[in-house]
Simulated scan of single mutants.
Amino acid sequence: MATYGDRYGAGPAFRPGSLALALGLTVGPIAALVMGLQITTVMKKPDIFEGYRVIEPPPPPPIKLEPPKTETKTPPIETVYTPPVQPLPLPPINPLPTTREVQPPNPGAAIGTSPDPTPAVIPTPIAKPVMVDAFIDPRYQGLLQPPYPPEEQRAGNSGRVVLRVLVGTDGRVKQVEKVSAASDAFFAAAQRQALGKWRFKPATQDGVPIEQWKTMSLRFVLNEQ
Rank of each mutant, 00 (worst) to 15 (best):
P67W: 04
P117Q: 09
Y148L: 10
E177G: 00
P129M: 08
P68G: 06
P104L: 15
F135N: 02
I210L: 13
T74Q: 10
I77R: 03
V42P: 00
G51Q: 05
G28T: 14
G28N: 04
P149Q: 01
D137E: 09
A181F: 06
A20N: 08
N94D: 12
P138Q: 03
K45Y: 06
L21E: 13
I48K: 10
T113Q: 11
F49H: 09
A2E: 11
G142N: 14
V167Q: 05
D133M: 07
T204C: 05
R15H: 08
S158V: 13
P105Q: 07
Q141A: 13
V42I: 11
I136G: 04
T72W: 05
F187G: 02
D184S: 05
T70D: 06
G17H: 07
V121G: 01
A13P: 04
G36P: 00
A13I: 15
I39F: 03
I63R: 03
T204V: 02
P107A: 11
R53L: 14
S217C: 00
G196E: 15
L195A: 06
K174A: 11
V161W: 05
I93F: 13
G24L: 15
L163C: 12
V80T: 10
K201C: 03
A32H: 00
P123C: 12
Q86H: 04
T40Q: 06
G9C: 03
Q153A: 15
D184R: 05
G171N: 01
I48W: 05
E211M: 10
P67H: 02
T124G: 00
